[in-house]
């Protein structure tokens, strides 16, 4: 690591692409899912911070493609391919999809974490991108940082410590 490495911040319902030695970081994932797709051979990676499982849930004419699992992953893969990634070399890591609060009401929105993970997994499978590692579910928030150089995803939590996958 040297001082010139940039940490590229990915916001909520946002998506960014980075080359080594830069890294990609998104903070405070709850039921949202952080999706990383990368081509290790050219040290290129993209990260999306997905909020909702399915773009058909949108009630707005102007769709923010980066907000939904299906459209965000399509966009992520397209941008990586445009930047020279090779489709067969793409792999992914995912984290998030927690259930932060337990409610007695069975509102669908309260189980959105699980549904986000399912939708992300499904969409990656649709693109034939394998998930090499994941840290999903539970009831804790996560901050994640991905290093395109090594393919390592660092995960930080408040109550469960730090890990690397």
């Amino acid at each position: 690591m040297n001082a010139t490495n940039q940490i590229i911040k990915v916001g909520i319902a946002d998506l960014k692409i980075a080359n080594a030695p830069d890294s990609l970081r998104t903070t405070g994932l709850g039921s949202c899912v952080g999706v990383v797709v990368y081509d290790l051979s050219i040290k290129l990676a993209g990260m999306a911070h997905v909020m909702l499982p399915d773009s058909t849930m949108s009630r707005n004419g102007e769709l923010n493609e980066m907000k939904f699992a299906d459209t965000a992953i399509d966009l992520l893969i397209k941008q990586l391919l445009d930047k020279g990634a090779r489709r067969y070399a793409l792999k992914s890591k995912i984290a998030g999809g927690a259930q932060m609060f337990t409610f007695s009401t069975s509102s669908d929105m309260m189980r959105v974490g699980n549904r986000n993970v399912e939708a992300v997994t499904e969409r990656l499978k649709h693109h034939r991108v394998s998930i090499t590692a994941q840290d999903v579910g539970g009831n804790n928030g996560r901050t994640i940082e991905f290093f395109p150089e090594s393919g390592i995803l660092k995960i930080r939590t408040v109550n469960m410590g730090e890990s690397e996958i």
């Binding site: 903070t27 709850g30 039921s31 932060m100």
Partner: peptide
């Protein structure tokens, strides 16, 4: 927990 993880639940 982290503010992001908590408040995003209310934004869904």
């Amino acid at each position: 927990d982290m503010a992001g993880a908590i408040i995003s639940e209310g934004l869904m």
